[in-house]
């Protein structure tokens, strides 16, 4: 890129500016302000959603204990956040790993479905192929309006999966849909700030699911041995 190709975009800005110090101070201050906005949005979102997050996390924990699997999906940056979330469940730094994967992980599957049956079906077709009624679907969208996610959630709901949506702005069609068991809408107009809060909501869901699995194990251990399936640790003793 040369000045010639970008100059027309900024005809009203001082092109002779040479000392970067003022800009660097502005950038640093802007970074701190945005981080504060992100922090406050994360805190207010978690506080407002706590009851629903606990309900969703408990339902997830119960399904995991019964052998359920988690599928996460999203588009663009949200697809990567969906993959990070699946990674937290299947390979956590602490706690019990459970079956979870992101439906954008396999580009052969995504492009085959996108090319042959249509992009709006890339997730719903995978739900049809993989899921059983005890499973869980989490879709991440900043707008709440992505057709491929809504189709995936609709298919998941039809098949008895627990359906959870993460959205932003006003929640869009996800918030309005009756196909979702839980919809977590982050009240912001910034895609970036919404995604940062989505990460914390996902983490909190994971923590509640872990706690639920621990509680259910305690309940199982308290039941009479005749009806109890030995845990792996007990078998090894």
């Amino acid at each position: 890129m040369t000045d010639d190709s970008t100059g027309f975009l900024y005809p009203f800005i001082e092109a002779d500016e040479k000392d970067p110090q003022a800009l660097l101070v502005d950038l640093a201050s802007s970074a701190r302000d945005k981080a504060t906005i992100s922090r406050d949005l994360q805190r207010s979102s978690l506080a407002r959603m706590e009851g629903d997050i606990v309900a969703a996390g408990r339902a997830m924990g119960e399904r995991f204990v019964a052998g359920g699997r988690l599928y996460t999906f999203g588009n663009g940056g949200s697809s990567t956040d969906a993959a990070t979330l699946a990674g937290l469940f299947c390979n956590p730094p602490a706690g019990r790993p459970v079956a979870a994967w992101s439906l954008t992980d396999d580009q052969a599957v995504v492009t085959a479905l996108g090319n042959d049956v249509g992009f709006e079906l890339i997730f719903s077709r995978q739900i049809i192929a993989h899921s059983t009624p005890g499973d869980i679907a989490i879709a991440l969208s900043t707008s709440g309006n992505s057709d491929d996610l809504l189709r995936g959630l609709g298919e998941a709901r039809k098949r008895g999966l627990l359906t959870i949506g993460f959205a932003g702005y006003d929640g869009g069609q996800m918030q309005a849909s009756d196909e979702l068991d839980h919809c977590f809408t982050v009240d912001s107009q910034s895609i970036h700030r919404i995604q940062e809060s989505h990460a914390m909501i996902g983490h909190r869901l994971w923590a509640v699911a872990q706690e639920t699995m621990r509680e259910l194990r305690a309940v199982r251990r308290a039941t009479p041995p005749a009806t109890q399936t030995p845990t792996r640790e007990e078998v090894g003793r």
Partner: peptide, 12 residues
């Protein structure tokens, strides 16, 4: 976000 702010300062 900050990288794109820099593009608004072609002199720098």
């Amino acid at each position: 976000e900050l990288t794109h702010v820099c593009f608004e300062h072609p002199g720098l």
